[in-house]
Nucleic acid binder design. Structure first.
Lengths: 104, 104
DNA sequence: ACGATACATAAGCATGTGCTTATGTATCGG
DNA sequence: CCGATACATAAGCACATGCTTATGTATCGT
């Protein structure tokens, strides 16, 4: 199951923080450690999990590895979530925001 | 973190199957076991996890406990996902379906 | 060429997770 | 009332997970 990797990856609070940081723009592994109290190997392992889940992709640049959000990952969640749209409350702010953004 | 409970709950394939079954309509704990090869206590424990995550809610009816999808749970995921709408691919089928449904 | 830097990988360990069997609690039918 | 049914809870166990320290690999600056 592809979904299992994604949900497992997002089940960890540290990984969600990392993902949110990347949503603000591409960053390398060291920069991602700022603020989060986490060792270098721990970050490396978290990034490997996020990458395996398809939530993040990397781009080597010399000594640095730049990470960025992989749209495929969130698309997968969107696809999964869409299966349950029948239960989506009619008036939820986040959804109307989403709707507005798409209507362009 | 509320999100942690939700993502942890959905990280298990069996729980996702249970949730999908419930998306097709309300069912009691025994009916949910059909098809899934799972013991009665295991199902009870899975349902407890889904319930604690806010993905599912229960309703006692005599000896039976009826479970159904809790819209608050998927709304939480939608809210979380909406934070990353900037990375959402423009043309994903599930999304346009969602859009269509909302435009009513 | 060499030390420093950026990151990955390996191994070990504490804790979490999902299952099992056993048992408890409540409601139903007769 | 009493056995059967529906479900929950407890305890124990195998395995997964996230961390640590130690070490490996590749690139940079000089």
């Amino acid at each position: 199951m592809v979904d299992t990797y994604i949900f497992k990856a997002l089940a960890d609070p540290t990984r969600r923080k990392v993902f949110e940081k990347l949503a603000g723009g591409s960053l390398n592994a060291s920069a991602l450690r700022d603020g989060l109290e986490i060792s270098q190997p721990a970050m490396s392992q978290h990034l490997a999990v996020l990458r395996a889940a398809g939530l993040v992709r990397e781009q080597r640049q010399g000594r640095f590895v730049n990470y960025e959000v992989d749209p495929d990952g969130i698309a997968s969640i969107g696809t999964w979530l869409a299966r349950y749209r029948a239960y989506w409350p009619k008036r939820i702010e986040a959804l109307s925001d989403l709707l507005k953004d798409m209507d362009q």
